[in-house]
Design a binder for these strands. Structure first.
Length: 337
DNA sequence: GAGATTTGACCGGT
DNA sequence: ACCGGTCAAATCTC
């Protein structure tokens, strides 16, 4: 038992070391870039002359560092038998509203009357585990292509505004378990904080769906723990990083630094084992396909607000994200989800 | 009348 | 025990 524990510690140390290295490299890069801005022509000369580009070198180093980290995390999952149970599959067993037969069976259908009315007990249900969750801000809540049906509203502790609960309209007919929660932003009530939970499985075109769901390299936010897990399937990262590193480096870096600060987050990785490269096409929410109206209004969290930590959120605006999307997501012939 | 929303109760996780 | 998420009867809207 101790050996296992030691092994885990060793792995965690390895993770931290790699992250620190990446962080330091990123810092150097930042300095270098700021220096470059003031000496632009000098660096241009260097590049033209074929000298090694320090920016690229650093970038390679950074990416390599994070790549290693991901590998370590991956091996950690195997060693620690952390079921990186994919949130998706977890969802299928828990959240799936094909509620356990015993559940409905025990209190089937029409007997569901209110307790207070003196009738039988309401049927049980299985609470969904948090799965595939991502958050965005928008000025409107109705800008995605899906049809939502409100099923609840609740006043949340220490929140000024109530939280509304929506589920996919097609849940009864197609068993789509996607839900979203909408709450007005505390500081800016004109903004809505929208949390999407789960993938849509309802019948819409692949392309549309792909454009409306998150990348598999999504930053999954575990709102319960105020921790963040940068979840990047290696299948995605390798070719991507090697060829496109620049665009996503900030994203990875943010996620990684958060992991570092918060200490490694054990169970919340969301490694879609079955994911394929096509999952990259599962780009973040609805805004991706949206029109220009919200172009400047939507931000994607790379972290989560925490009342107990000093995280700085890093937002990607649509410009950045679009470039990412353009680079990575030729989702032809891919099947979303 | 059908479908959507409201709202208080119920339930599970912590 | 508390809190957040979900259920489902009641109510609303078209």
């Amino acid at each position: 038992m101790d050996s296992g524990s030691n092994n885990t510690k060793s792995i965690k140390r390895n993770v931290v070391d790699q992250l620190v290295e990446g962080y330091e490299s990123a810092t150097q890069l930042q300095l270098l870039l700021s220096h470059q801005q003031s000496n632009h022509h000098i660096d241009q000369t260097r590049i033209v002359s074929g000298d090694p580009d320090p920016v690229n070198e650093l970038m390679d180093k950074i990416l390599d560092s994070f790549h290693k980290t991901i590998s370590v995390l991956d091996s950690f999952d195997q060693v620690a038998n952390v079921s990186v149970v994919l949130e998706g599959s977890r969802n299928a067993s828990c959240g799936d509203d094909s509620t356990p037969a015993s559940c409905n069976g025990g209190d089937s259908g029409d007997s569901r009357k209110r307790l207070g009315v003196g009738k039988s007990k309401r049927g049980c249900y299985t609470r969904k585990k948090r799965s595939h969750t991502w958050t965005m801000e928008a000025r409107r809540i109705d800008e995605d292509i899906y049809a939502w049906r409100k099923y609840g509203q609740k006043q949340i502790l220490n929140s000024t505004f109530p939280r509304s609960y929506f589920r996919c309209t097609h849940k009864p007919t197609q068993g789509c378990n996607a839900t979203k929660q909408v709450q007005k932003h505390e500081q800016d009530p004109s903004l809505f904080q929208i949390t999407y939970i789960g993938h849509h499985t309802c019948n819409i075109s692949v392309e549309t769906q792909a454009k409306t769901e998150p990348l598999d390299l999504e930053i999954v936010m575990d709102s319960d723990n105020n921790k963040l897990a940068a979840t990047i399937s290696q299948d995605h990262v390798d070719p991507y990083i090697q060829e496109q590193g620049n665009d996503i480096s900030s994203l990875i870096g943010v996620g990684a630094s958060m992991v570092k600060e918060e200490d490694y987050n054990n169970g919340d990785q969301n490694c879609e084992g079955s994911s394929t490269y096509s999952d990259l096409s599962l780009v973040w929410p609805d805004v991706m396909m949206s029109d220009d109206r919200q172009h400047h209004q939507n931000h994607f969290y790379h972290g989560e607000a925490s009342t107990t930590t000093s995280y700085q959120f890093s937002f990607i605006d649509n410009d950045q994200f679009s470039s990412l999307f353009d680079s990575y997501c030729p989702y032809e012939g891919t099947s979303a989800i």
